[in-house]
Design a protein around this nucleic acid. Structure first.
Lengths: 238, 238
DNA sequence: GTCTATATGGGGATAGAC
DNA sequence: GTCTATCCCCATATAGAC
């Protein structure tokens, strides 16, 4: 590969791609440096260790994406003044910076997105710490925004729905190979806009779904008759 | 650990747990055999290689879970006769066998679920082949069931929504640490029934959501005014 | 900043005794 | 079926010349 940039950036670019393809433990520093066309020792010179390299790979990308998320949310809220920002606009502000990242050539998006998706399923390797450091502020801001849009939904339910949304998003990022193989080419995963629109529609509906009759505990198995679900009605249950 | 079973099962149990905690490349055969209290060479005797061990770890669990999924779906369809099985019941048949697996002690569920969640984000290591071999039939059956429940929704949209549902589910399985840390204890991730109910409600709403005006291409950015979305109304757009 | 060479440890797999 | 011992390879990290 060895793009035309500095040694440091060549290492980061190739590490990002290889980590996405083979995982962290599955990617040796030798593989990275030989793909980047740099010397093996350069990694330990520019970064302190492999773990610090991993951290840099993440934060280089997450920082601008999260900044843009917050900027979009700010814009929505300023525009709305004292009004309410719709759930859809909040979801968009959360999802778009990841699914259509700025300043990254389309060829570089797949590795980035695969890598970010992998992050969620990787409990070890300090990935959790990196993630929380970068995401805590973002999560707080969006949780509050959803809460303002849906004041009747209890805070923990808001968090669950945000969690499911993140899951659908991460899966869309990292596991597009599944839908490609299962659909036999019926679904076009290269269409970023189509993905965003579908994901937004799905997530908005889920986030705005009516509260279950009882949030906790088992519900009767036979469930209710197949009639259509009511939309965000007033919740007499609570 | 070394549960009281045979050597082969001790290896499988400990491999499952360690793969979930540290990943495939992050777990050495030595770590597995010493945790299991068996000899290192036993792995290559009972399984052919590390890759074959990974395959066995998965299929040992996936086979009964998928069998139960199909059995639940069969039961729904038989009960409905010529009628329609609701989206909610189909979602339940898909989700419950994973989130409340039978025949596995609660202590053993976390490793299993973490591991299954990890599978989706792991493109390499033959995991794809294993997954597709086990899942192809299941995906086909559930796709058809959703299609029958929602005949107006085009097939590729059905697949996208199933994809998002799988994502929310996988995330719930593998990444419960995220919601735990972000919520600061507000969300109880040990409550399997609560998780199922919330996930089902979210997914059903997403799957039944109205079709967007145009499935492809970019939509006007300002989106529409904040009014509530209509629920599963008749879709005049199509 | 970049290279070579090497220290040090761990990896998967197997041979062959029991 | 189970064990010990070993082969051979690759990993991260560092020392020190250029």
């Amino acid at each position: 590969m060895r793009t035309g940039d500095s040694t440091k950036e060549r290492i980061l670019d190739n590490a990002e791609r290889l980590f996405a393809e083979r995982g962290f433990d599955g990617t040796s520093l030798r593989a990275i440096t030989s793909a980047a066309g740099v010397n093996l020792a350069a990694v330990n010179y520019h970064f302190r260790s492999k773990n610090d390299l991993i951290q840099e790979v993440f934060s280089r990308r997450l920082a601008p994406i999260n900044a843009r998320r917050l900027a979009l949310l700010d814009a929505c809220e300023n525009e709305a003044g004292n009004g309410v920002v719709s759930v859809e606009r909040v979801v968009r502000a959360f999802v778009e910076p990841l699914l259509r990242p700025e300043g990254i050539a389309p060829a570089g998006r797949l590795p980035l997105q695969t890598l970010l998706g992998r992050m969620y399923a990787e409990p070890g390797r300090n990935v959790r710490k990196i993630f929380l450091g970068e995401m805590k502020e973002v999560a707080r801001r969006f949780r509050d925004a959803f809460q303002r849009a849906l004041p009747e939904v209890p805070p923990n339910e808001i968090l669950w729905r945000l969690h499911f949304t993140i899951g659908a998003m991460a899966h869309t990022l990292a596991a597009s190979w599944i839908i490609e193989m299962l659909s036999g080419g019926l679904c076009d995963t290269s269409d970023a806009n189509g993905k965003i629109e579908r994901l937004v529609a799905f997530a908005v509906a889920g986030i705005e779904s009516p509260l279950p009759l009882r949030a906790h505990g088992r519900r009767a198995r036979p469930s209710r008759p197949p009639g259509p679900r009511r939309a965000l009605a007033k919740r007499e249950d609570l």
